[in-house]
Design a protein around this nucleic acid. Structure first.
Length: 277
DNA sequence: CGATCTACCTGATGGC
DNA sequence: TGCCATCAGGTAGATC
């Protein structure tokens, strides 16, 4: 569920709440949530360590420990990171609990169990976490001359939605924000990347950056099920600014044509059939 | 290289 | 009420 803006919201709050805090104990109850390395190894590399800073790469949360190692968390479809008092009741599907002093916990809750947490030595990232090492351009973190973006786009004969959601090309966009960015740029999801004009590439570049920044401002998107919440359990507000996502049958905010929903790559895709070309 | 499936899971929702 | 199908923010791997 969470894409770049949601993960960035979580990152900022984690950094504010936990930077400098020392891990007292770790409890791992969900078998699937820790699958790179053993449970004992994760525990040993966390206990007694402090959270130094919290960073983000694409949709990965990266906690830099005072040992220099990284605690990496990916929330996949249904993961949540929640700050809670030790005595507060534990939600169902709580798989990992990191205990700090003063009775504060960081909990990893994940009903569908696709998410994961692991500790990695950043010097060995390419070997031990190639998925993290190979991430592409992060539209919030990485300054990128737009001509370099143009090279990324024009060099591929691939449909735009595949390009935007390919984490090795652009890190952090998923189903919601790729649809929103394509609408903002006036481009269809199935347009081939290498057919874009220079002007269209520039519009896409600007649209991606703008959408991501606006969504971070609004603390991300929570859909009807409120699966995404921040570390305090609060939903985001960007869904109120969605122009196309989950708005099929309604008027396009730009041209008033009726927005459509279709299936692309096995997922719902929303677009305006009139002003996205 | 690129497109298309499948699989990994639980839970919410809607039709009958 | 129950039962069944479908859908959900992601990604990796197999196959063509």
């Amino acid at each position: 569920m969470p894409e770049l803006p949601e993960v960035e919201t979580i990152r900022r709050d984690l950094d504010r709440e936990f930077a400098g805090k020392k891990v007292k104990a770790v409890q791992i109850t969900g078998a699937r949530s820790v699958r790179r390395g053993t449970h004992d190894d994760l525990t040993a590399r966390l206990v007694g360590r402090s959270f130094k800073t919290v960073k983000r790469r694409g949709k990965y949360v990266v906690v830099v420990l005072d040992s220099g190692e990284w605690l990496v968390v990916h929330l996949r479809m249904s993961g949540q990171l929640l700050k809670a008092a030790a005595k507060a009741p534990r939600p169902k599907h709580t798989h990992v609990v990191i205990e700090f002093t003063h009775g504060i916990q960081l909990r990893f809750v994940d009903p569908r169990t696709f998410g994961e947490a692991f500790v990695v030595d950043p010097a060995r990232l390419a070997d031990e976490a190639p998925d993290v090492a190979e991430l592409g351009w992060d539209p919030l973190e990485d300054p990128l001359p737009w001509v370099d973006f143009a090279r990324l786009v024009l060099g591929r004969r691939v449909q735009l939605k595949a390009l935007l959601t390919d984490q090795k090309v652009i890190a952090g966009l998923g189903n919601i924000y790729s649809d929103e960015a394509l609408h903002a740029a006036g481009l269809r999801y199935d347009r081939l990347a290498n057919t874009l004009t220079v002007q269209e590439v520039r519009r896409l570049f600007r649209a991606i950056i703008e959408i991501v920044h606006e969504a971070v401002q609004a603390r991300g998107s929570s859909l009807a099920d409120e699966q995404y919440v921040d570390i305090y359990g609060k939903p985001g507000a960007y869904q109120d600014q969605h122009q196309v996502y989950a708005r099929e049958g309604r008027a396009c905010p730009r041209c008033r044509a009726t927005l459509q929903r279709t299936k692309w790559g096995g997922r719902s895709t929303f677009f305006c059939p009139a002003c996205q070309i």
